[in-house]
Amino acid sequence: MDREVIEEALYEVIDPELAINIVDLGLVYDIQIAESNDVFIKMTLTTPGCPMHDSIVNGVKNRLLQIDEIENVTVELVWEPVWNPSQMSLEAKKQLFG
């Protein structure tokens, strides 16, 4: 299982409030793939206590479980290090800064 396949899939998980994918927003901190192809994602959100909390976490699980080789996905939501705008891609910055 390639890390790129997972990253590619995560580009399709969109933050419904900002309409930007979670990778470009810099929300994904770590991707780990076990030999059994179980996937562990460490991620954050733009603000602690975001109402989209459950939806985005479930979105990550739903998207990754659509990949045939993956059977288990664990998502750990962390608040440290705190998300900051410098983690965004240029594309995301363009969208937000208008």
């Binding site: 969109i14 419904p16 409030e17 479930n58 979105g59 990550v60 739903n62």
Partner: peptide, 20 residues
């Protein structure tokens, strides 16, 4: 947001869902 959560929260990542 409330209606989106009710209608689309379970579908995020599975299919294209509207933004808020």
């Amino acid at each position: 947001f409330l209606w989106w959560t009710k209608q689309y929260a379970d579908n995020i990542g599975k299919e294209k869902v509207p933004t808020l």
